[in-house]
C-alpha cells in the first residue's frame, strides 16, 4: 500500500493548503505588490511608483514614532503581563500556607474565587473594556480622579489620557488588565500538571516559596510561558493595541502622537487619508517587525525540554 501514500497525504492537505494560500499567502503577496503603487483605495486606477512609498516611510516622523510605540508594546506588555500572571498563578496554585490535614502544596485561601475574578475581564470584548476605561480616566468625573478626591487627594488630578507623559502608560495598563486573567488560567493549568512530589521534595530540602518558584515551577512551565510570550507580543502589535488606542486616546493617537501605534497608522492612512498604497507599505513594515519578534523569541527561548 506504500504507493498510494503520497496521494493520500496530498488529498488531505490540498484543501487546507489551498485555503491558506488563498486567504493568507495571496493577500500578503498582493499587499507587498500594492506597496509599490500609488493606489488610493478609492478608485480602481493606480500606477507603479517603485520604492517611493518606502523612501517616504523612512522620512516619516510619525512612522518612526508609531514604530517605537509598537516596539515598546511588544517588549513591555508581555514582560509585565506574564510576570504578573506567573505571580498570580503561583499564589493560586502553590503559594498557600500549609493547612492541617491538607495537601503539602496548595494555593492561597480563596484561590478558586481569585481564578474566576482574574479571568473575568477576558469575557468582555476589548472595545467595551476600552470604553469603560475611557470613562474611568475622565479627569472631570471619572472613577479614578473621583476616588483621588474621595480620599483627600483633590490636588492630585492627573489628566491621564490627556497628558502625553501618561497616556501611553494608561493604554498599556488597560491591556495588562484585560489580558492578565487569560494567562493566569493558562499558567494555572500548566502548574496543575506539575507533579506534587517535586514540590514536596523541594519542601523537604528546605526550599522557600521563591526558591520553589524559580527552581521548579518556572523551568517546568517554560514552554507555556514562551507560547504566552509570543501570543502576547502579537496581541500587543496587532488588533488589541489598535482597539484601545483608537477608542480611548486623544485624536486618536495623541496627545501629540504620544500613543500612536503602527496598526493605527495603517488604518488612518488607508481609511482616513485615502492612501491605501502607503498604508500597505507600513503594513509590510509591521509584517517585518512581527516576524522578527517571533524569530527572536524562538531563538532566545531555545532550551532542553524537561521530561517528567
Amino acid at each position: 500500500m506504500q504507493h498510494g501514500k503520497y496521494r493520500f497525504i496530498v488529498g488531505f492537505l490540498a484543501v487546507p493548503l489551498g485555503l491558506y494560500a488563498l486567504f493568507v499567502v495571496w493577500p500578503f503577496i498582493q499587499s507587498i505588490y500594492y506597496s509599490f503603487t500609488d493606489w488610493t483605495g478609492l478608485s480602481p486606477e493606480f500606477k507603479m511608483v517603485g520604492v517611493d512609498n518606502y523612501t517616504r516611510m523612512f522620512h516619516d516622523d510619525i512612522f518612526w514614532k508609531s514604530l517605537w510605540h509598537s516596539l515598546l508594546f511588544a517588549l513591555l506588555l508581555p514582560l509585565v503581563t506574564i510576570s504578573l500572571a506567573l505571580f498570580f498563578a503561583f499564589m493560586i496554585n502553590a503559594g498557600g500556607r500549609r493547612r492541617k490535614g491538607g495537601p503539602a502544596v496548595t494555593g492561597v485561601r480563596g484561590s478558586s474565587f481569585y481564578k474566576i475574578v482574574y479571568f473575568f475581564p477576558q469575557v468582555l470584548s476589548i472595545a467595551i473594556v476600552a470604553l469603560l476605561f475611557a470613562f474611568a480616566y475622565n479627569p472631570d468625573s471619572g472613577a479614578i480622579n473621583s476616588l483621588l478626591r474621595g480620599i483627600g487627594l483633590g490636588s492630585v488630578q492627573p489628566l491621564w489620557l490627556g497628558d502625553p507623559n501618561l497616556a501611553l502608560w494608561c493604554v498599556m495598563a488597560v491591556l495588562v488588565w484585560s489580558t492578565v486573567g487569560f494567562f493566569v488560567v493558562l499558567f494555572s493549568a500548566g502548574m496543575a500538571s506539575i507533579p506534587a512530589d517535586l514540590y514536596e521534595a523541594a519542601l523537604l530540602d528546605g526550599a522557600g516559596r521563591a526558591g520553589t518558584f524559580f527552581r521548579i515551577t518556572l523551568p517546568l512551565l517554560w514552554d507555556t510561558v514562551q507560547s504566552g510570550w509570543v501570543y502576547m507580543g502579537i496581541l500587543a502589535l496587532g488588533a488589541e493595541s489598535f482597539a484601545v488606542v483608537q477608542i480611548m486616546t486623544t485624536g486618536p493617537g495623541g496627545p501629540d502622537y504620544s500613543t500612536t501605534v503602527l496598526v493605527l497608522y495603517v488604518y488612518q492612512k488607508a481609511f482616513r487619508d485615502g492612501q491605501a498604497a502607503y498604508a500597505t507599505t507600513i503594513g509590510v513594515a509591521l509584517l517585518v517587525v512581527t516576524l522578527l519578534f517571533a524569530a527572536v523569541v524562538m531563538r532566545l527561548g531555545r532550551r532542553e525540554r524537561l521530561e517528567f
Binding site: Y34, I234, A276, T280, G283
Partner: peptide, 13 residues
C-alpha cells in the same frame, strides 16, 4: 500565532 498576528496586513488586502 505568527500567522494570527499578521492579519493586520491582509486586512488591507
Amino acid at each position: 500565532s505568527a500567522a494570527l498576528g499578521l492579519i493586520s496586513v491582509p486586512t488591507m488586502s
